[in-house]
Amino acid sequence: MRNISDSLEQYLKQILQESPEGAVEIQRNDLADRFSCVPSQINYVISTRFTLEKGYLVESKRGGGGYIRIQRVELPALKAIQGHISQTIGEQVDQNAAEGLIYQLEEADLISRREGNLLRAAICREALALKLPLRDEIRARLLKAMLISLLMK
């Protein structure tokens, strides 16, 4: 059985996918009522699963008429992917940002789940048992090389 966080995430992704604008506005309390949970559960799911690194822009307005707006940020066209990778990764990249980019590429069907798992295994802290900032520099170089190789097939 799926937990409430997984169900919320899937529901939000589904309505985002069905939205012609690629964005949705939700009322936190309405969503909490729909899933029989507390509004803080909604906050948790949005703040951990709908991040910029994962390809989402979240805007929140509090108060009586408040809402949460989630918008999918599209990756650039395939021709510009190499530049996007270099810009996103830079000279150093921490594990969270790297995993976010991998997630975004999986969601866009540019890499498979299996390829994503291999990338995550190669760039994790345990595999790169080095001190910072060297670890983030090596991770950036590895990730750039692997992604460019995968995406330029």
Rank of each mutant, 00 (worst) to 15 (best):
A77D: 12
L57V: 05
E126P: 02
P133R: 10
A129H: 11
L151C: 10
Q14F: 15
Q10H: 04
E74C: 00
G116I: 10
A140V: 06
Q95G: 02
I89R: 02
S19N: 11
I46D: 06
L16Y: 04
R135M: 09
P20V: 08
V38Q: 13
D33N: 10
N117K: 15
I68Y: 06
A32G: 12
C37E: 01
G64I: 11
L132A: 15
I89K: 00
F50R: 08
R49Y: 10
I138A: 09
I81W: 03
A77H: 13
G63V: 02
A77W: 07
Y67I: 01
Q104H: 15
M152H: 12
C124R: 09
N96Y: 04
H84S: 10
G100T: 03
P20T: 08
P20A: 09
D6K: 11
S86R: 12
Q27S: 15
Q10S: 11
T48Y: 00
R141P: 07
V45L: 07
I85Q: 06
I89Q: 00
Q87P: 02
Q27H: 13
E25V: 07
L12M: 13
G66A: 03
G63D: 04
P133G: 10
G55T: 05
A32H: 06
A145I: 04
S149V: 13
V38A: 14
I81S: 10
R62C: 07
Y67T: 09
D109N: 10
E53N: 15
Q92V: 04
L128D: 09
I138F: 00
L151D: 02
T48R: 05
G22P: 08
R139N: 02
I68D: 02
A121C: 09
L130G: 01
F35N: 03
D94N: 11
V45P: 00
I46M: 06
A145Q: 14
L78Q: 07
Y56N: 03
I4K: 08
V24Y: 09
A122P: 01
S86C: 10
L78W: 00
R135P: 06
L143I: 06
I123P: 05
E18I: 08
A23V: 04
R113V: 15
G66M: 05
